[in-house]
Simulated scan of single mutants.
Amino acid sequence: MKRDQFIKSFLFAGTALCILPQLSFGYSEENYSRDILIGKGTPNLLGDSFKMQQESYENFLLMKAAAAKENINIEVVSAYRSFRRQKEIYEGKYRRFTAQGMNPMAAIEKIIEYSTIPGTSRHHWGTDIDIIDANAPRPQSVLQPEHFHGKGPFCKLKDWLDQNAESFGFFEVYTDNAHRKGFKYEPWHFSYAPVSKPMLEEYKKLDLKKILLEEKILGAQHFSEEFISTYKSENILDINSKLLS
């Protein structure tokens, strides 16, 4: 069901919220402080098992309800993630890979195939989600590209998202594009564009190297100017063009 049709029926039932993308209940650009942008602030988040900014969250609920009509139960595996949590993930991998004999830069390059350096994750913004279909058989490791294609359990979800997600403001971030660099293809990762686009514009103004050194991230002493420049252009900015201003 397309978004316009869904909203009309929702309003007719008298239960819809006024949460169209053009109406913003999130932060204005003035509120996108350094700490908010790197996951160390205290954003106004909604949700129980997962957290999102209000506008992102409420439009996600509309999308989830529309998908449910097609017997698709969108489950959020990950949404808002704090700097502290991302640091735990990143440094856990860094310690494991270096203990296995990798040199620091090889470990970092391995980590950033899928995981972000803390302070640089889109999940810090409360706009991005990793999703699966809870009605499908659950594989042991759910976030694998093959599960969303061919005969994978989440093919029905992927097909539905391809047709409908953008009408709710959600866009796939790391697309299956042979010319795209940075993070590998993630068919499960979607971003709520009306909020994440202005947040990215504010994020681009930050001094990334200064932040990474100030926050004492494990291995940060190996982040050269060249590495930071490449990471910013490939991992942060080489994304779905519809999420760029």
Rank of each mutant, 00 (worst) to 15 (best):
Ala65His: 02
Ala66Asn: 03
Ala66Phe: 05
Lys69Tyr: 06
Lys69Cys: 02
Glu70Ala: 14
Asn71Glu: 14
Asn71Ala: 11
Ile72Cys: 05
Ile72Asp: 01
Asn73Arg: 06
Asn73Met: 05
Asn73Tyr: 01
Asn73Gly: 02
Ile74Cys: 04
Glu75Asp: 08
Glu75Leu: 10
Val76Thr: 14
Val76Cys: 09
Val77Ser: 14
Val77Met: 12
Ser78Pro: 00
Ala79Ile: 03
Tyr80Cys: 02
Phe83Tyr: 15
Gln86Asp: 07
Lys87His: 05
Lys87Gly: 04
Glu88Gly: 01
Ile89Phe: 09
Ile89Gly: 11
Tyr90Asn: 09
Glu91Arg: 04
Gly92His: 09
Tyr94Met: 08
Tyr94Val: 14
Arg95Cys: 05
Arg95Pro: 00
Arg96Ser: 07
Arg96Tyr: 07
Arg96Trp: 06
Phe97Cys: 00
Ala99Phe: 13
Ala99Thr: 15
Ala99Arg: 13
Met102Asp: 10
Asn103Gln: 08
Pro104Met: 10
Ala107Trp: 12
Glu109His: 07
Ile111Glu: 07
Ile112Arg: 14
Tyr114Lys: 14
Ser115Gly: 03
Thr116Tyr: 12
Pro118Ile: 15
Gly119Tyr: 13
Thr120Gln: 11
Ser121Pro: 08
Arg122His: 14
Arg122Ala: 14
Arg122Cys: 13
His124Ala: 10
His124Glu: 08
Gly126Ile: 01
Gly126Arg: 00
Gly126Pro: 01
Asp128Pro: 07
Ile129Pro: 02
Ile132Asp: 03
Ile132Cys: 06
Ile132Val: 15
Ala136Pro: 08
Ala136Ser: 14
Pro137Tyr: 06
Pro137Leu: 03
Pro137Trp: 05
Pro139Arg: 07
Gln140Tyr: 12
Gln140Leu: 12
Ser141Tyr: 09
Val142Thr: 13
Leu143Asp: 01
Leu143Gly: 01
Leu143Gln: 01
Gln144Cys: 01
Gln144Gly: 04
Glu146Asn: 09
Phe148His: 01
His149Ile: 14
His149Leu: 11
Gly150Met: 06
Gly150Asn: 13
Lys151Tyr: 10
Lys151Ala: 12
Lys151Phe: 02
Lys151Arg: 11
Lys151Val: 12
Cys155Pro: 01
Lys156Glu: 12
Lys156Tyr: 03
Leu157Asn: 04
Leu157Glu: 03
Asp159His: 14
Leu161Met: 15
Gln163Pro: 00
Gln163Leu: 09
Gln163Trp: 04
Ala165Val: 11
Glu166Ser: 13
